[in-house]
Amino acid sequence: MREFTAVVNPAAGGAVGAAVLVPLARELRAAGARLDVEYSRGLEHARRLTREAADRKRTVLAVGGDGMVGLVGGTLAGTGAVLGLVPAGRGNDFARALGLPTETAALAEVLLRGEPRPVDAIEVESAVHPRTAVLGSVYAGVDALANRYANETRLLRGAASYYAGGLRAVLGWRVTAFRVTVDGREHAFRGYSVVAANSAFYGFGRRIAPGARVDDGLLDVVVLQEASRLRFFTTMNDLKTGAHVNRPQVAVLRGREIRIEADRPVPYGADGEVNATVPVTARVLPGALNILY
């Protein structure tokens, strides 16, 4: 029977995290599994808790949203340790990409009896991220700004915070000249955003890269080029289904190493966290992490 250590982000999860974890813990323990719960006090503390659990050969459960999943998963990448996801955030986009169940008993069954499967991770390198790893996507431009606004809001929850953040970001956006280098080949364009995606989803279930797979050893690079604000909002509406990739102002590239630069210091984010500006490099780490799903 597996032994688990749950690393919990109390700030992001809050009451939602408790509502998810408490019944899940009851299911796991009733089945005979051992479960320890650790509450992080910050990013470095969460990384330390994760490393300590991995050193003890525990299956590490990331309890929270995409930021927590990316932090814990990135810490475990390349170690051979096993990760389990307990979706308890606003977006839960990486869990969505894996097709994880949300019902407690079904999720417990995956964690108790599922076989670990290798998935890719993304190595992120910039002035403030010296070779850290994340799981879902790295994105630069208006979507990173929108995500920053969504994280800052205290009045709105869930999808509403993303919509409000997106509206604020787009209305104030100044079209930017990007330079995107994919496996050594340079592409220049003016527009809104660049997304290097390992997962199909970001931003609360938006299907930004419908062709992306978590285990194919490649990143899908989605470029949102210059257009009127009205056309941009129409394109954003298509993200619900992934139909935006058929629009002429959207380009999709694929590669293993992507560098994003711009003519001004636009923000970039990774797995829901935004605290830096371009330039940034994203490299796929094939099969770097074992996940239960």
Rank of each mutant, 00 (worst) to 15 (best):
G14A: 09
T102C: 04
G242L: 11
Y163C: 02
N9K: 10
I208H: 11
R283N: 06
D216V: 12
V119D: 00
A227G: 06
T181F: 07
L100H: 13
G136A: 15
G80A: 02
Y192T: 07
E38D: 05
L145G: 03
D220P: 09
L24Y: 07
R96E: 02
R264P: 10
V110A: 06
E38M: 15
D66R: 13
T153N: 02
E257F: 04
V142I: 13
T277V: 09
Y139R: 05
R148I: 06
R231D: 06
F233Q: 02
A197K: 14
G91P: 08
L292P: 03
E3G: 11
V280Y: 08
D215T: 02
L239H: 05
R231V: 10
L100C: 07
V60L: 00
V245T: 15
A164M: 04
I122V: 15
E226N: 05
D55V: 11
L112I: 03
A188V: 14
P279T: 00
L145P: 11
R207L: 12
L49K: 10
N151P: 01
V60H: 09
E226H: 06
G165E: 07
K240E: 14
L155Q: 10
R47T: 03
G80N: 02
G91N: 01
G203H: 05
Y268D: 02
A95R: 12
T181L: 05
T75S: 10
A46E: 01
R48H: 13
P210I: 03
E226I: 09
L111P: 09
L107A: 05
T75L: 03
T241F: 11
D220G: 02
R58E: 12
K57P: 01
V170P: 12
W173D: 03
F201C: 00
E123D: 00
A25H: 10
A77P: 12
D215H: 12
F94R: 13
Y139N: 09
V214M: 13
L219C: 07
L155T: 07
A164K: 11
A159Y: 14
V250N: 01
G78E: 09
G78H: 14
R117L: 11
R90E: 03
V82F: 01
S137W: 04
A33Q: 04
A209C: 03
L156S: 00
T132H: 01
G13M: 05
F232L: 15
R131W: 04
L107E: 10
R154S: 10
A6H: 08
E27W: 04
G172Y: 10
P279K: 00
G84S: 03
N290Y: 00
M1P: 08
Q225F: 04
A262N: 01
L111I: 07
E186F: 01
G205V: 01
G114W: 14
V222I: 14
I122R: 13
R29N: 03
Q249N: 08
F232T: 05
D271H: 07
Y202Q: 15
E123N: 08
R51H: 02
G242W: 14
N198P: 15
R47I: 01
V195Y: 13
A88W: 13
A25M: 11
G89H: 08
A15F: 10
T50L: 02
G78A: 03
G217W: 15
F178Y: 02
E115M: 12
L43W: 06
R254D: 01
H129E: 06
V37K: 04
L289G: 07
G166H: 13
D183S: 00
Y202G: 13
V138F: 11
R231C: 01
Q249D: 13
V128L: 15
G141H: 03
